[in-house]
């Protein structure tokens, strides 16, 4: 029998078993997909890893990136050159400007509008503020000012309060704002709405009112001219005041020789007369009794 093995260098036209199996393996759908898709992905990941493995190159990349970002942010299209403040009068506008301390031109990317708004609203005289950057590089600040509704006399001076009791500004003299009602006493600013209600209720005797005094941070005294005083209760003072005014209208209580009307117990109003008139009244009573 002749040798079954082929001589050296003989090449069979048929594929070898190895190449046949490899070819079949290459045609396996999953493997094929992994190769077609995963191969390029792995290669790309490898290239990127090799590029970024160098520390210097990475730093250069980062600085280049920041340079590009700065370049874009500092374009003149994004620059803010002026600020316009609406709704605030001059002293307040100047104060806002000083508070924000902006050096123009500034890029609109560097402005934190939310923080600036908080900054503006931190001012006492500002109720709310809206900030936006208008076309043409204008920072637009729309301010709603607080409206003073009351004067609060404290130990250190006069303060203007708005209807909620927030401080607006200081006041030099009472006569500067003679139109506003006056309150005083510790903690009076926390009860401004109630004070306003009381003033509204006391309209008939308004010309005689000197002011409201907060007593013990819980109730009000209404001080009238000639030293007259109405002590109001803690609960429902408006109703008590209306009661006093009704008596006044019917009996002209406050035009008499009365120093104090005590309404702290509304069911038992108490009146204190002037010392002199009390004696007079007692004499009259004695005479009446004597005649009998």
């Amino acid at each position: 029998m002749r040798s079954l093995t082929h001589p050296r260098g003989y090449r069979d036209p048929a594929p070898s078993r190895l190449s046949y199996r490899l070819h079949r393996l290459a045609l396996t759908p999953h493997l094929r997909r992994a190769f077609v898709l995963g191969g390029p992905l792995v290669a790309a990941a490898l290239v990127l890893t090799l590029i970024f493995a160098d520390l210097e190159r990475r730093a250069a990349m980062v600085s280049w990136y920041h340079g590009v970002v700065d370049q874009i942010q500092n374009r003149k299209e994004f620059a803010v050159n002026t600020v316009s403040i609406n709704g605030a009068l001059d002293p307040l506008a100047d104060e806002i400007r000083a508070r924000m301390d902006l050096r123009f031109p500034v890029s609109s990317f560097d402005l934190d509008l939310e923080a600036m708004r908080a900054q503006v609203e931190a001012l006492d005289a500002v109720e709310s503020a809206h900030l936006r950057i208008r076309k043409g590089g204008v920072l637009d600040i729309a301010v709603t000012q607080r409206v003073p509704a009351m004067i609060w006399r404290t130990r250190t001076g006069l303060q203007l309060l708005d209807a909620e009791g927030n401080r607006v500004s200081s006041l030099g003299f009472r006569d500067e704002r003679a139109d506003l009602p006056l309150i005083s006493g510790y903690g009076a600013d926390r009860a401004v709405p109630e004070a306003l209600q009381l003033y509204a209720a006391a309209r008939p005797v308004l010309p005689r009112i000197r002011g409201l005094v907060r007593i013990g941070e819980r109730r009000w005294d209404l001080v009238l001219s000639e030293g007259q005083k109405v002590k109001l209760p803690e609960d429902n003072p408006v109703r008590a005041l209306e009661q006093v005014l009704a008596i006044d209208e019917a009996e002209e209580l406050l035009s008499r020789q009365v120093v104090l009307v005590d309404m702290r117990m509304p069911r038992r109003p108490t009146v204190r007369l002037k010392p002199k008139s009390a004696e007079v009244s007692r004499d009259e009573r004695v005479q009446q009794l004597g005649e009998k």
């Binding site: 036209p13 048929a14 594929p15 078993r17 046949y20 070819h23 079949r24 045609l27 396996t28 759908p29």
Partner: peptide, 18 residues
Amino acid sequence: ERAIRTAVQGAQKAAQVR
């Protein structure tokens, strides 16, 4: 076996399917 491998591989190559 070699002849079958030749034929099958050729057909697979043409079809691009295993």
